[in-house]
Design a protein around this nucleic acid. Structure first.
Lengths: 148, 148
DNA sequence: TCGTTAACTTGACTCACTCCAGAAAAGACG
DNA sequence: CGTCTTTTCTGGAGTGAGTCAAGTTAACGA
């Protein structure tokens, strides 16, 4: 794992490690996602443009797909929400989603280290990943609901 | 639980039980979803039209939403797929999705009865449901990959 | 420095899904 | 059974995330 706040050269190293060309849009996207976990594509475009000026939305979509494919980012899309991206990859962690405000938080896996990778092995599928989404209410919304 | 192959009167009972009016489109949608688990909206529209003749897509969307809200259907939408509906509700079960062909199968929960409802209780969220999606390769695609 | 090839720009387009207003049907009540 | 109220259905237009395609630009290895 790189340092908690990766620098430009960290990003560059990541890109080269994945045999991807190092370009300004890619650096900016990588940085934006590291700085704004669980951001949707639109927010990322916003952040990237703040840093770089004009970047086409298409470029951001391409970069996000390339980085996701290379394993540098992870794409999550809870029901009823648009696609979101996060930079925490490689560790098997999951998410809690607030039903009322859509907030997302990371949760480490409950059942040990590589926990939920065993289904009751049905149907002959070869399972390589288990994705868990917890649905609930975040502290803010819980408080708001109580006081009403 | 009703019989494995619910009849029209079962559907009617379900609708009335949910204080929903009994209409032909609703019956047809309910029957279509029971007969085609994990079908997407478009397929459902197709099946409904085969049985009823002309039905607006809007009606089907409305019905699906009403039935989902009433708890008679469950909506699932794995990443990269459009919304799908299934009739198995009430029991906490999960899904395996094939990465290559998108096939979906039901899986009972691995870790006991109401299993994964405990996250490592982070962030003060009040969790009411855990949704698990297993990603992997279905038997057909596994075979196809091996023989290539 | 040059050529190759991947990456970016622009702009049109697709497709699932939603919104709206009016017409029709279902259920309740006398 | 007939009328009234409420809910649902129809048809058509609209929205918005995401994609496709063609052409230009820039990264990087030789």
């Amino acid at each position: 794992m790189v340092s908690p706040v990766p620098t430009a050269s960290d990003f560059e190293r990541m890109l080269r490690g994945a045999s991807l060309r190092v370009t300004a849009p890619r650096m900016a996207v990588l940085s934006a996602v590291h700085g704004h976990p669980h951001a949707d594509t639109d927010s990322i475009i916003g952040v990237v443009r703040q840093n770089l000026g004009a970047v086409s939305h298409q470029a951001v979509y391409d970069v996000l797909r390339a980085l996701t494919g290379a394993g540098l980012l992870r794409r999550i899309e809870p029901q009823g929400s648009v696609a979101r991206y996060e930079a925490r990859v490689g560790d098997n962690h999951h998410h809690v989603v607030c039903r009322s405000c859509g907030a997302i938080a990371d949760v480490d896996c409950a059942v040990g280290a590589a926990p939920c990778l065993d289904a009751s092995d049905d149907h002959g599928f070869v399972i390589d990943e288990a994705e868990v989404i917890y649905w609930g209410t975040c502290p803010e919304c819980t408080t708001a609901a109580k006081s009403s």
